[in-house]
Nucleic acid binder design. Structure first.
Length: 567
DNA sequence: GGGCTAATCCCCG
DNA sequence: CGGGGATTAGCCC
């Protein structure tokens, strides 16, 4: 290698000639050489974010050639420090001096010379590839200064860049490029960091999801610690009851047969299984008209359904409704479509019928909406409130005019409320003269699906047409809420309201209310719940006593305090 | 091959 | 004209 190679325009990556030639484009300044200062290196590196490590930036011996820096009067004494250190020892082998000095030439040259150098190259050989990039790195000192400047100001103005370029013996263009690239690098680093965080979060959520799924598949009872999935147990219990009924049936027949021989008489029990299955239309189960509304269930002798089978049927109805509610709460499009105002989801009836293999009853209109939101209450407190007719009334004073529990079919499992099933009668209202109070009989069933995840489902047991009394008949198809504890004292509540009604019996003024979801829709229930719970939370956090003389009525205050104390 | 960096190209305000 | 995105060229590991 000699200086002749400076004019060797042989193209080709890694060719010294090409590199030197392109290097020439930076000018012809010569100066004594400097070597890498280890101290400066570490110092510079410490300014960098992770990817800019010593290794990646400085540690290669090849790089050390490019990193050499001409000593200039403007270097403010840094040069002397630089001279005392050597990284990679690259300046001691043969030819390195020449190469170095030539690198320096383009390093130290500033301004338009560089551009002209490139254009000169192009002029010299117009037929060869248009541009050939020289390999070049700024020196640690330059980078250090650039970095410290960058720390202060990632967007230096022209004056600052000019000052920097003078101080660092770089072209203003180079300073500009450097800052541009540094900003880009910063951005990608930031993105990478964000990606890592998101990935981490994603992994966490995935794991959480898995454990929740696992918990739902094989949960343990919170009170006894044993394996206890309510649904499974209830189903198992249900199957056992059916089996039991079948065996009783068989026994009865046998007894009857023997009785014929022995002259005794035994009552014959009908199995209600076929009745239950036959009438269960995706949760749209219709009980005989005389079934609901009464304070007690008809005795087996009257209805032909024995007590165990009644419960079994109701339980099956409740479980079916619960499944439907959970599916409704969890599904997204196409089953649900966002309402125009985005406040709630509206049920896609076609998709609903497909999903639950049901058909739309003729002459009946259906309305279904879903709303989700955070409520400052824990899931168990909410569930207990819902399962207690009085507390339910207190919690939803505007929505529930009257409520009674007409029959408790199951008080819950193992001393908990989990699995509680009851028949209820309520008068629901909208507090509008346009909308008459409506009376509904329904089953209310609550079930814990996982730790901190509960659901309460209501389902009417009245057939829509056979309700008497002249009040508008609206039957609730599986409706209710799924509630999940959050870590911050709030719960996420997803409220589903699904009703079926005879349009002819609904006052025309009321129809738009139903259609808009404002009537008895999920929005209204959730909004009431949120408001009440916020009030109660405030009440609890302040030291309000029952003697506190405030503007609320004594009854209201008592009721609120009672609610608050329970929470 | 991919990462890093200096530099280029090109679009947009 | 400058900034920023996309891209390239050259080098390193």
């Amino acid at each position: 290698m000699n200086f002749g190679s400076l004019f060797d325009n042989t193209p080709g990556g890694g060719s010294t000639g090409a590199r030197l030639l392109s290097g020439l484009s930076y000018g012809n300044h010569t100066a004594s050489t400097n070597v890498l200062p280890g101290g400066a290196l570490a110092q510079a590196a410490s300014l960098f974010s992770p990817p800019l490590t010593n290794k990646s930036v400085y540690a290669s011996s090849g790089l050390s050639l490019a990193l050499e820096q001409p000593e200039r009067g403007t270097n403010r004494g840094e040069a002397s420090m630089m001279r005392n250190n050597n990284v990679g020892g690259g300046d001691n082998f043969d030819g390195s001096v020449n190469r170095r000095s030539r690198e320096e030439e383009h390093e130290s040259r500033s301004g338009s010379d560089n551009v002209e150098g490139i254009s000169g190259e192009d002029q010299d050989a117009a037929d060869k590839p248009p541009r050939k990039k020289r390999y070049h790195r700024h020196t640690p000192q330059q980078i250090q200064e650039l970095e410290s400047m960058f720390k202060e100001c990632p967007h230096p103005d022209e004056k600052q860049r000019l000052e920097l370029s003078k101080r660092l013996c770089l072209e203003t263009r180079q300073v500009k490029f450097w800052f541009q690239n540094r900003r880009t690098q910063m951005k990608t680093q930031l993105e990478r960091h964000e990606n890592a965080l998101l990935r981490q979060e994603n992994d966490k959520l995935r794991a959480e999801n898995m454990s929740i799924r696992e918990a739902m598949r094989n949960p343990t009872c919170t009170s006894c610690g044993g394996p206890a999935m309510l649904g499974d147990i209830s189903l198992e219990e249900h199957h056992l009851r059916i089996e039991n009924a079948r065996l009783k049936d068989e026994l009865d027949r046998v007894c009857n047969l023997t009785g014929k021989f022995l002259g005794h008489h035994h009552h014959h029990y009908n199995s209600s299984l076929e009745l239950a299955v036959g009438n269960n239309n995706g949760g749209n189960f219709a009980f005989p008209p005389d079934f609901g509304g009464g304070a007690c269930l008809p005795p087996p002798q009257q209805s032909g359904i024995n007590g165990i089978d009644q419960k079994s049927v109701l339980l099956e109805l409740a479980l079916t409704a619960m499944d439907e509610l959970v599916k409704l709460a969890q599904s997204e499009e196409p089953l649900w479509v966002k309402s125009l105002d985005g406040e709630r989801d509206e049920l896609n009836q076609d998709e609903y019928m497909r999903t639950f293999s049901t058909t739309k009853p003729t002459g009946l209109a259906t309305e279904a909406s879903r709303t989700s939101g955070m409520v400052i209450i824990n899931s168990l407190a909410l569930v207990e409130t819902l399962m207690d007719s009085n507390r339910w009334m207190e919690m939803f004073p505007c929505n529930v005019a009257r409520a009674t529990t007409t029959d408790v079919i199951s008080g819950g499992m193992a001393g908990t409320i989990n699995g509680a099933l009851q028949l209820m009668n309520a008068e629901l209202q909208v507090l509008s003269p346009l909308v008459p109070v409506r009376n509904v009989n329904f089953l209310r069933f609550c079930k814990q699906h996982a730790e901190g995840v509960w659901a309460v489902v209501d389902v009417s047991i009245d057939p829509v047409r056979e309700n008497s009394g002249g009040s508008p008949v609206i039957r609730r198809l599986p409706s209710g809420c799924v509630v999940q504890d959050m870590s911050n004292g709030y719960s996420k509540v997803t409220w589903v309201e699904h009703a079926e009604y005879d349009e002819n019996q609904i006052h025309q003024l009321y129809r738009p209310l139903l259609r808009s979801g404002l009537g008895f829709g999920s929005q209204r229930w959730l909004a009431t719940l949120q408001r009440q719970c916020e009030c109660l939370a405030v009440l609890m956090s302040s030291n309000v006593t029952s003697n506190d003389n405030t503007s609320i009525t004594p009854g209201g205050r008592k009721s609120m305090l009672k609610l608050a104390q329970r929470m």
